[in-house]
Design a protein around this nucleic acid. Structure first.
Length: 257
DNA sequence: TAGGCCATCTGGTCCT
DNA sequence: AGGACCAGATGGCCTA
């Protein structure tokens, strides 16, 4: 854990320092505009690809110094935004670290099989977090179902009697580490819903960016949680996230700040 | 050396 | 108008 976090911090600090070079252009006073390749090579294809109805903002009112200053300001904002995003990612990663550091297979770096001390990649963190959420959801659903059965069996009218919860004997999810269990052991210990099975395939899900789902994954039913997508919408075929399509077609409406 | 992951820059678009 | 967000491009670092 500390290892991972310190690595993260060290690397973040190391890479957050803007260097004068191809990776950072106008940001530093000693880096003249157009020093790197990005400012010229990137602009041309973008301008040709995105023929937006909006005309490009006229910049001829700005002097070169003002343009440079504006660029620095925008770059700084963007850097700050990405750093904040990384802080949030680290916080999420910290929750998922038990999963990352106790797996036995050291083969794949961005899969749960990452060796101890090596941090989860962003994509792995997100995939694992999603799977964990799905697993929790399925556990909750199963818990409710069993509570209903217990209530009926005892002749108790359905009411708010979550005694099992207070007894501390609920054998469901203890934490992300439980995702380490084998598929078989999870099938026997966790709810038997299809969504939980989907959530358990984190090993392949983490790899799904490059590897198409295997036969077992393909047989899994789509997740039925309303938070995942509109009902009736087929899951994303990309194999990476299996989210509903609408998430890809256009980003969801932004939350108000 | 190839591939994965990442930070950064950049221009466009959307939102307040 | 300014800021936030997004996605493409690029280059560096690291590992198998």
């Amino acid at each position: 854990m500390m290892n991972v976090l310190s690595n993260t911090a060290a690397r973040a600090q190391e890479q957050s320092i803007p260097l004068c070079g191809p990776g950072s252009m106008h940001d530093l006073p000693h880096c003249p505009p157009g020093f790197g390749l990005n400012s010229r090579l990137n602009a041309a294809p973008l301008l040709s690809l995105h023929s937006s109805p909006r005309a490009a903002k006229p910049q001829k009112e700005l002097s070169p110094e003002e343009q440079q200053e504006l660029r620095r300001k925008i770059n700084s904002r963007e850097r700050k935004r990405m750093q904040d995003l990384n802080i949030a990612m680290d916080a999420l990663r910290e929750v998922m670290v038990p999963y990352a550091s106790s797996s036995s297979s050291p083969s794949h770096s961005h899969a749960p099989g990452a060796p101890p001390g090596r941090r989860l990649s962003k994509i792995s963190t997100l995939v694992l977090a999603r799977n964990y959420i799905l697993l929790l959801g399925s556990s909750l659903q199963e818990m409710r179902r069993l509570l209903g059965e217990v209530s009926i069996g005892m002749g108790v009218s359905t009411g708010p009697v979550p005694r099992l919860l207070f007894a501390g004997g609920w054998p469901l999810i203890a934490g992300p580490r439980q995702l380490l269990l084998t598929h078989e052991s999870l099938i026997s210990s966790a709810p038997s819903s299809s969504s939980s099975s989907a959530a358990l395939s984190s090993s392949t899900a983490a790899k799904c960016a490059t590897v198409p789902p295997g036969p077992m994954e393909a047989s899994l039913a789509p997740v039925h949680w309303s938070c995942v997508g509109a009902t009736g919408v087929p899951p994303c075929p990309c194999g990476v996230c299996r989210l509903s399509r609408f998430n890809h077609a256009k980003s969801a409406p932004r939350f108000s700040k």
